[in-house]
Write a protein that binds this DNA or RNA. Structure first.
Length: 429
RNA sequence: GGAUGGGUGGCCGAGUGGUUGAAGGCACCGGUCUUGAAAACCGGCAGGGGUUUACGCCCCUCGUGAGUUCGAAUCUCACCCCAUCCGCCA
């Protein structure tokens, strides 16, 4: 949500930001509504003030038994009140319209975000690790998983339809190992607080992190008004909704390993094979709540925390900064981390780390009180990142650690979580 | 699902029609005292918005929205949320 005051003060900056995102200018339309609202409000407040004043004097007149004066004042108030309802209604309508419009406008890109229309304009900022050379043709993860008889798309489809998968035995355990490994790293080494949050949330929470109102179609909802979280970002970030924190509390760092649910509306035909794009997947999420001064450094830190997972798993990856046209709705700047998938011969997104600035905080009313200042509050900054997508990490391990015979080596960092096993043996071996 | 109780400032908690935006406590900020800290004491301290060059002035907010009234945190209605007990249940 944008600050109407900053639009008033810098309409040109606002429109420029939208333009960088490929959107039309909106400031003049918004400001026209705003001006109308302010005029209406000022007029209404004058009437309210006059009414309050007269009411007070009625009380005084009655106390002094001056019934004539009281009666006269009552008449005055009655006359005043004739005009008030219309102004009240008008002000309310305008306010609602403005809020609806503002709620559907995405965050503005940070100054150092490269301009561009789509992912082709994203900029690689670093490349880490070398794709392993294989003396055989690399297979894709679903070929490997199905050959192992441990990845069952058919059974999943029979009960749930497309975009679901059922993992078995060593692969099911591998998923658990990955999740545990990531949580241990982020809590133990990086100081994130492990959290086990609700997976069903209300409208307000989804509005807070900006899945609503614009992306309703991409969510799963229950028949009685709950939403299934599309990412733990929703639950973790909304922890601070409608609160006023102390500056000393920050930064707050939370992590959670949860299932995520996405309808994948609009993704028809994309990534239909395999488990790259599922209706349900698990992810370890990182969320930080910071002061405005801290958020930029925290963004770099968070990205490096996510990267560390890939380093420890010895998976090659590259980090890109998304261009203005490819960023998500709430982000002011985003790094994507893309892991190398030899079976696809491509880098594929495995993490997305975003600094949302105060955009979500405004929607959630998440504020803090600066130290040494007992008066006044400021909005916090919120950041979120995958640390990492667990399903896609499993995909990456399968493809990068595949052996000629179809078995999968287990990365050393995960072996303690796999009962010491060094490989997932080929079926029938 | 049934029954009851309840939603007040950062937190706890008074307050049932009239200068109450709200006692008291805690927290926080400033000060006195102290070698320093703590304690004690003194003072300050809700949020949002409009308007103003500024000082300031004004409006709104006691879950939300309607209503009664000259006037509502206080009365009425609807809704939302929370708690407890019962039922069901992992």
């Amino acid at each position: 949500m944008h600050d109407i005051k900053s639009i008033r003060e810098n309409p040109q900056d606002f429109d420029n930001g939208l333009k960088r995102r490929g959107l039309a200018a909106l400031s003049s339309e918004i400001l026209k509504l705003d001006q109308d609202w302010r005029q209406t409000t000022t007029r209404l407040q004058e009437m309210q003030s006059a009414r309050n004043d007269a009411s007070k004097r009625i009380g005084q007149a009655k106390a002094q038994k001056n019934d004539a004066e009281a009666l006269r004042l009552m008449g005055e108030v009655t006359r005043l009140k004739d005009e008030m309802p219309a102004a009240e209604q008008r002000a309310k309508e305008l306010e609602q319209t403005i809020n609806e419009r503002l709620g559907e406008i995405p965050n503005l890109p940070a100054a150092d975000v490269p301009d561009g229309p789509d992912e082709s304009a994203n900029k690689e900022v670093r490349r880490t690790g070398q794709p392993r050379s294989m003396n055989f043709a690399a297979k894709q993860h679903f070929e490997l998983g199905e050959a192992l008889k441990l990845m069952d798309f058919e059974a999943a489809t029979r009960m749930s339809g497309a975009r679901f998968v059922l993992l078995k035995a060593q692969l099911a355990r591998l998923e658990r190992a990955i999740g545990n490994f990531m949580l241990d790293l982020h809590t133990g080494t990086f100081g994130y607080q492990e959290t086990s949050p609700p997976l069903l949330v209300r409208d307000q929470a989804m509005f807070g992190t900006a899945q609503l109102p614009k992306f309703r179609d991409e969510q799963f909802g229950t028949t009685n008004g709950y939403w299934l979280i599309p990412t733990a970002e929703v639950s973790l970030t909304n922890q601070v909704r409608e609160t006023i924190l102390s500056e000393a509390d920050m930064p707050l760092r939370f992590t959670a390993w949860t299932p995520c649910f996405r309808s994948e509306a609009g993704a028809a035909g994309k990534d239909t094979r395999g488990m790259i794009r599922m209706h349900q997947f698990s992810k370890v999420e990182l969320v930080s709540i910071t002061t405005p001064e801290q958020s930029q450094a925290e963004h770099e830190r968070m990205t490096s925390c996510a990267e560390e997972v890939l380093k420890r798993l010895d998976l090659p990856y590259r980090t890109v900064v998304l261009c203005t046209g490819d960023m998500g709705f709430a982000a002011r700047k985003t790094y994507d981390i893309e892991v190398w998938l030899p079976g696809q011969n491509a880098y594929r997104e495995i993490s997305s780390c975003s600094n949302c600035g105060d955009f979500q905080a405004r929607r959630m009313e998440a504020r803090y009180r600066p130290t040494g200042d007992s008066k006044g509050t400021r909005f916090v900054h919120t950041l979120n990142g995958s640390g990492l997508a667990v399903g896609r990490t499993l995909v990456a391990i399968l493809e990068n650690y595949q052996q000629a015979d179809g078995s999968i080596a287990i990365p050393p960092a995960l072996r303690p979580y796999m009962g010491g096993a060094e490989a997932i043996a080929a079926h029938g071996a």
